[in-house]
Design a protein around this nucleic acid. Structure first.
Lengths: 225, 225
DNA sequence: GTGTTCTGACTGGTCTGACCAGTCAGAACA
DNA sequence: TGTTCTGACTGGTCAGACCAGTCAGAACAC
């Protein structure tokens, strides 16, 4: 059973990370917070000691308790700077994350995951046979997001869903050579084969090759990482 | 002027890291410690809250306050406040992102960036000289966040600030071997040298080595990516 | 002599109320 | 108009009381 001070610390931490108290702002006074939370000021002070040790707040005698934690972006507003992400920055961003998603997915693949990858690949191929590029792009995005999901890492998964819109946009960039509309699906097949066989380094390389080829198709330099 | 509670926390922290209280042992009772330190039990409890948040001790009602520094954290159990990410998942997450930050920072380093890296390193070294592990952990986090900033990629930068809380937590995990408190700063030096000289692949490797060593220090397996 | 139950003295946790020291907006004053 | 003072805030510290958990050893039953 966690202590009252720990429960209070977690409650305040949630409120801070959910944006109720942006970085730089002062928390309500200790006396006010202890009333709000129906706990004593001594217990509240223990909670604040915890938050201070975690680097989330800083107390200043006579002034207040100020939030120092990094600001969580406003959900209604695009991420700071991401609205301004150039295609170059986005491909660079993907080059950092997606090979790692693929490698982790390969390490953790199970039968259910294999089936889902195959189903998406079949969907994408069917859409291409019908020359339905919009539907193919949807399957394309599902493919990348599924790989993030199969990485089974909460932080990486949350980034994937957070940036799914931008990734989706980058998948829709016009091809420099429209004749190559099957290339992405062919490259996906190689990625799936590596993931399904559990080969992390092959999955990493296949994803990097795919992203490099995608960058080349839209005339963007691929980052030398 | 640090508070009495912070001074007490630092005094106890020093005694723990210097081996006076080995992992698993109980500290003297709160009533006894408050007498020894000539402070109230309320102030002592605030100090203990700080140590608990840093993962150095664990209180158990009716039994005592036990030293956990140097013990291997349970990788399946989440850090306090980061319910979604286990220490294992977090180090994996960082293993994906931070080498890339370092590599991009190396490609884009300028004189201002070089100065800021040096200033943070000096700050961290000064804190270690004073045995101030809380302050050193703050500088440690600033180091990692600055590298993300110097990567100059909006998506990666937003991830850094978004996960700064979790990264900060992982920097505060107790060391399996408390004697090695200078190792992170030494490893940071190698990373800075690689970034400052503009060598992307050296910066990538130096950061990976640092993260592997950090994982090893807290008894967590480093992901084979 | 052995097993069970109880109890007192510890432990940590929480609270109340009092008071100290720092801060600052606005009143009072020159 | 500029300076000083003050009251009402803020956080920091303390003492003391009491609650709930733990457990070694005493008391008791067989």
């Amino acid at each position: 059973m966690p202590s009252i001070a720990n429960i209070a610390a977690q409650a305040l931490q949630r409120r801070i990370t959910q944006g109720e108290f942006p970085a730089g702002s002062a928390l309500p006074s200790q006396r006010e917070l202890s009333e709000q939370l129906s706990i004593s000021r001594a217990s509240l002070r223990e909670a604040i000691s915890t938050l201070e040790a975690l680097g989330m707040v800083r107390s200043q005698p006579g002034k207040g308790v100020f939030v120092t934690a990094g600001q969580r972006p406003d959900p209604a507003r695009p991420l700071r700077g991401t609205a301004a992400m150039s295609p170059q920055a986005l491909i660079e961003f993907r080059a950092v994350l997606e090979p790692a998603w693929a490698a982790l997915a390969a390490l953790r693949i199970d039968d259910d995951g294999r089936q889902r990858l195959e189903a998406i690949q079949h969907g994408m191929e069917a859409a291409l046979k019908h020359c339905d590029l919009v539907m193919a792009a949807d399957w394309d995005l599902q493919f990348h997001l599924l790989i993030a999901e199969l990485s089974d890492n909460p932080g990486l998964m949350s980034i994937a869903s957070q940036f799914s819109e931008q990734i989706g946009h980058s998948l829709r960039l016009p091809f420099s050579n429209p004749a190559g509309i099957w290339e992405p699906a062919d490259e996906h097949r190689l990625i799936i084969d590596a993931i399904v066989s559990g080969d992390a380094s092959s999955a990493n390389r296949a994803m990097r090759s795919h992203l490099a080829a995608a960058a080349n198709r839209v005339g963007i330099d691929f980052p030398p990482l």
